[in-house]
């Protein structure tokens, strides 16, 4: 029997994988994609809890999360392209001007 707990556990695993990915990858776009993974994991958790409580508030919140994620991706990638145009490099390690 699959209870919402399973889904929440899966969401936890996906979230942790996404978080580690953000820290380990160097390509800016891949980091962004890991962030999307984290957001998706959270969405899954929301939907599972909506099923748990029997009302649709969790689903509505997940819906809003999707919308916000979309707009965030748009702006983030626009920034990324404009950075790439000047620096010709997509590696986040090259943006280290804040070094001591």
């Amino acid at each position: 029997m699959i209870s919402p707990a399973h889904y929440v556990a899966l969401a936890v695993i996906l979230f942790v994988i996404g978080a580690v990915g953000v820290l380990v990858r160097r390509n800016a776009i891949v980091i962004f994609m890991c962030v999307e993974l984290m957001l998706n994991a959270v969405n899954l958790a929301f939907v599972a809890f909506a099923r748990l409580h029997g009302n649709l508030d969790g689903q509505v919140i997940a819906f809003f999360v999707m919308v916000v994620a979309a707009s965030e991706v748009v702006v983030g990638l626009a920034i990324l392209t404009s950075i790439f145009r000047t620096r010709k490099s997509a590696s986040v390690d090259d943006a280290n001007l804040l070094k001591y």
């Binding site: 953000v22 820290l23 160097r26 986040v92 390690d93 943006a95 280290n96 070094k99 001591y100």
Partner: peptide
């Protein structure tokens, strides 16, 4: 001061 490596990933 050395903690400020300038790398985004270490800050993350």
């Amino acid at each position: 001061r050395r903690m400020q490596t300038g790398f985004v990933r270490s800050y993350a």
